[in-house]
Simulated assay, not measured.
Amino acid sequence: MTRPYAEVIGDPIAQSKSPTIHNFWLGKLGIDAEYRAFLVEKQMEALEAYFPLASTDGDWVGCNVTMPHKQAVMPLLDRIDPLAQSIGAVNTVVREGLKLVGYNTDAAGFLEPLSADLAQTHYFRMARILGTGGAARAIITALAGHGFTLVVAGRDPAKARALLDELAPKGEHHAIDLAHFADPTDFPFDDREACCDLVINASSLGMQGQPPLAFDWSHAPPGSIAYDIVTAPLDTAFLQGARAIGHRTIDGLSMLIGQAAVAFERFFGQPAPRDHDAELREILTR
């Protein structure tokens, strides 16, 4: 007996939390389907071989796409959603009839825990985005669309500038060397009460097995929100440093669960049962 399934593809893939999230929701809704993880190696040939095989399986409904394939997958699809096209990366592929359609749910997932903040009116909005990888592309696009002035910091400032020129050509945005934020500053921030300030680690720095993220919190205005997309560890040194001086923090599970919920509905045709988020978080942090 067969049943519908979706899966996440990437290299490496064993560490992915996506199967736990999607199978938890499938169980809660009583949907007879499955979500798996499937290793598709880094080489382009492996990615090119995957879709002809997957799309001929009548039970395959689509896949999530993680590193390093989010950009490489785009030429292999029949159609790309306009948001994914503007971001320049696809993290969700859905079979729609005979077509493979690419979406990006990272932007929506990133914005979800900020929805109450974005519903407010601010005198000024600024986001310091640390990192220039695939996740940063979605974050830059999402925040530029909500009126933020962006400061993108990377180990290669030229890459940061190129991202801004491509994804947020309107507005006075800034590219800077990531090392700038490592040392303390005595910059006198003004009254930020009517402002929205974000500091986002959009890189893998601080993740288990990766170098630490060197960020001195003197670079963040009072009342900033610290947001780290890293999920292992969940409570990173970056978030701990922010919390120690009174900043609000958002961890990586917020974006992970949010983007998964958008993909889940596309795969399985029902909204994810988000009233069970607390239980899901407990499972994911065991």
Rank of each mutant, 00 (worst) to 15 (best):
F148I: 07
G147M: 12
T132N: 13
F124W: 14
A160W: 03
A116S: 12
H146Q: 05
L143H: 10
G134A: 15
A160M: 07
A162W: 12
A144C: 08
G171L: 10
L163M: 09
H173K: 01
G171P: 03
L111E: 09
A136Q: 12
F148V: 08
T132G: 10
A116F: 00
G133L: 15
I140S: 09
H122D: 12
P169A: 02
L114M: 13
Y123K: 13
A116M: 06
G134E: 09
A127K: 01
Q120V: 13
Q120C: 12
G131R: 11
G145E: 10
P113R: 02
E166T: 05
H146S: 06
T141G: 05
L118E: 04
A158S: 10
V152K: 01
L167W: 06
G145W: 13
H173R: 02
E166D: 11
E112I: 03
Q120S: 11
A144H: 05
T149Q: 12
V152I: 01
I140C: 06
T121L: 04
A136F: 14
F110W: 02
P157M: 08
I129F: 02
G133R: 13
A135Y: 09
R161A: 14
G147Q: 08
A168G: 03
G145P: 11
T132Q: 07
A135K: 04
V152L: 07
L118F: 06
D117I: 02
E166P: 00
T121H: 07
T132P: 14
M126R: 15
T132I: 10
I129Q: 10
L111N: 01
E112N: 10
A162P: 04
E112K: 04
A158M: 11
R125C: 01
V152H: 00
L114E: 13
G154W: 08
I129L: 04
R137F: 06
A138G: 02
V152T: 01
D165A: 08
P113W: 00
E172P: 12
L164Q: 00
G133N: 15
H173D: 00
R128W: 06
G133E: 12
M126S: 11
K159I: 07
H173A: 02
V152Q: 00
F124E: 11
G145L: 07
G171F: 00
L163K: 05
A138R: 15
A136G: 04
Q120A: 14
F124G: 06
R125F: 02
R128H: 12
I129T: 01
F148Y: 13
A138P: 07
L164S: 00
H122C: 07
A160V: 00
A135F: 07
A142T: 05
I139E: 12
I140Y: 01
H122I: 14
R155D: 06
E166V: 00
A116C: 04
A116N: 04
G147W: 14
A158H: 11
F124D: 13
M126Q: 15
D156H: 14
P169M: 00
L163D: 05
V152A: 01
P169I: 06
R161H: 09
V151Y: 00
H122N: 05
R155C: 09
I139C: 09
P169D: 13
T149C: 09
A119H: 11
L143Q: 12
A138W: 08
A144M: 14
H173P: 07
H146V: 09
S115T: 14
T132L: 15
D117A: 10
L114N: 03
G133M: 13
A160K: 06
E166K: 15
L130I: 10
Y123S: 13
A160H: 04
R155Y: 10
A136S: 15
D156K: 11
